[in-house]
Design a protein around this nucleic acid. Sequence first.
DNA 1: GAACAATATGTTATAACATAACGTTTTTTG
DNA 2: CAAAAAACGTTATGTTATAACATATTGTTC
Lengths: 161, 161
Amino acid sequence: MSVESVLIPFKNQQHNHESCIKSALADAEAACSKAGMRLTKIRRQVFELVWSSHAPVKAYDILAQLHQENPRAAPPTVYRALDFLLSVGLVHRIESLNAYIGCGDPSQPHIGQFLICEACGAVAEMNAQKITRLLRKQAEQLGFKTVNQLVEIRGLCPQCT
Amino acid sequence: MSVESVLIPFKNQQHNHESCIKSALADAEAACSKAGMRLTKIRRQVFELVWSSHAPVKAYDILAQLHQENPRAAPPTVYRALDFLLSVGLVHRIESLNAYIGCGDPSQPHIGQFLICEACGAVAEMNAQKITRLLRKQAEQLGFKTVNQLVEIRGLCPQCT
DNA sequence: GAACAATATGTTATAACATAACGTTTTTTG
DNA sequence: CAAAAAACGTTATGTTATAACATATTGTTC
């Protein structure tokens, strides 16, 4: 058995994060233009702040950062941008943390499964069809029609083990 | 394949909920006395309010109800009771709803998987080892050591389909 | 059962997370 | 360009949760 799809693996500490951001931005531009959506200045700024690390980022932390460049930013500024990014599939929300993280593969909408390191805060994203299918199947056994799935696994990442 | 363990199934609308509550209370008494913990008056009241339906209940709704019997109740009153009930395993928190629901089997701590009906709000609890094991295994493939799992499936329950 | 320790609750204030409502600006489209 | 649509600004407030410290209750030891 193998993990079919790892969208964002755990990175070592020396990885070049600038290139992560750059690549994510390119993907975002592509996804938006394909969908006919506008990646405005604010949305891009919020997107870059979400991507500032591989750990989830909180809305009010984004706001504080954003404030440096845009003194008029207020909570709705950030939440609107996040809602947009979520709707296009460029970021995910980690429910158990009230925080947001960049999506590893915005090229197509998907259900992500998240691995959250309780030591360093890093998050990896899987997209294992095996899990998706099993959950759907087990739910079906109870007569339940699945629309959406939320999987967040907490533990220790390879570096912190 | 079958669902190995359904802790709380979806109930029909005519089911006798009084008996659900009664049975849950008996379980709670047993679990507390076994663990050497005290199910105080406030904790019992909060527990009963959580069990007032098979849909998740919000902390401030509990507070409003509690207030009728106990005018001095404040947010910490409720959150402390909920924290206690969570720690003993008598209730679960539904992360995607910021809400709380009675546990279907407090006799032993467990990881629950929740089915949330988007139409009627009802929640069923599964405890499928197959899911737990698969998630652990897939995480392990990435060098991740699982401590805890969160699974919340959204969709339509049998009655609402 | 008095003294002490531990646990539980009361109380006030505030932190943290999120949205409603309405006005203004910018962009797109015919 | 004018009208419509989309994005953003602004103010206020709703919702969820905890910090910090005081008081009360319960359990334990002698």
